[in-house]
Design a protein around this nucleic acid. Sequence first.
DNA 1: CCCTAGCGGTGCT
DNA 2: AGCACCGCTAGGG
Length: 167
Amino acid sequence: MTVHRVPIATCRGTFVACFSERGLVRLNWPTDKPVPKRTLTTGHGVGLAKVRRWRQLTDQALRRALAGRAPSRLPPLDLSAGTAFQRRVWRLLRRIPLGQTWSYAQVAAALGAPAAARAVGQACGANPIPVLVPCHRVRRSDGSLGGFSGGLAWKRWLLAQEARAGR
DNA sequence: CCCTAGCGGTGCT
DNA sequence: AGCACCGCTAGGG
């Protein structure tokens, strides 16, 4: 399966979006390492025009999300790599309204698996599309932040943006 | 703040 | 099948 890797420049650094033939399959955090060259391979399933369209949608959606506002439109998300449980968690995360946070236990309960809070945390950590699949809106039952694969500074910042924009 | 027991999903062997 | 991970939780110092 060919994957197209495309840099997405934002006010907080350059993310790298990866597109499968089904849509956005992964969003990588900005790193200090040099941004890899765009890899757009022709002739294998994915039309370049489609990827360009998805790139544009991702760019706009990410811009809005980083401003703490709801993206108007998302590219198709390819979450097929996850397990059944992970996909259920990720689907539920997308229904947490912007500006709200749920606890890992609340997410687990909403899935009908009230004892699986820890597994929910693990699934959040495996979220391949951070920010757009808002795993940052989940924290511990005691109100503390809990973990974040992108680093707690990002989690704090994203929640602050959403709180600010919501006022 | 710390510690502990208990929990479910996942990936490795 | 077993086992050691984990973005957790409730309970207790």
